[in-house]
Amino acid sequence: MAANFGANSRYATTDTRSWTTPDGQEISYLARRFLPHPENLAGIGSHVVVAGDRLDNIAAAELGDPELWWRVADANRAMLSLELTAEPGTTLRIALPEGVPGMPHV
């Protein structure tokens, strides 16, 4: 069963699990979300980091929604998202979410 998160959430397609305690109480929890392989994500652009950049602002500018910051992190294989904006001049890849095919270049 999938969790009930908004469509723009990185957990939108993540399943939930449940565990029953010895006394019969059922506890629901979110299954582990594995990071996608960036090379499998369809690239749609790039962003060069400037001093003071934040992923939510980059996502708002590049993807139209600051809550999609996780897509920038996924496209750049980031476990610690703050590292992506730590060094001005770094080029970040902007990509579609996993499973969404890109358009071929014409």
Rank of each mutant, 00 (worst) to 15 (best):
P101Q: 15
P88F: 01
S81R: 10
T13P: 00
P66M: 07
L55I: 12
L92C: 08
V100F: 14
H105M: 11
S28M: 03
N8Y: 06
L96E: 11
N4W: 04
Q25C: 00
T16S: 04
A59G: 04
Y29E: 04
E62Q: 15
G64E: 02
D15S: 14
A95D: 13
G6V: 15
D23F: 02
S81G: 08
P38N: 06
S81N: 10
T85M: 03
P36F: 14
F34Y: 09
D23H: 04
A73R: 07
L80E: 13
L96T: 07
R33C: 07
Y11K: 01
L82E: 14
I44Q: 04
I27K: 02
S18G: 05
F34G: 08
L68E: 05
N76A: 15
E26F: 00
E39A: 11
Y29W: 07
Y11H: 06
R17M: 03
T85S: 08
A51R: 15
S18Y: 01
A59D: 04
E26R: 02
L92S: 04
T16C: 03
R77W: 00
S46F: 07
T90H: 05
H105A: 11
T20G: 04
V106W: 06
L92T: 06
G52K: 10
G52C: 09
A59Q: 05
L96H: 03
D65A: 07
G6P: 15
I44A: 06
L96P: 12
D65N: 15
L82F: 14
T20I: 10
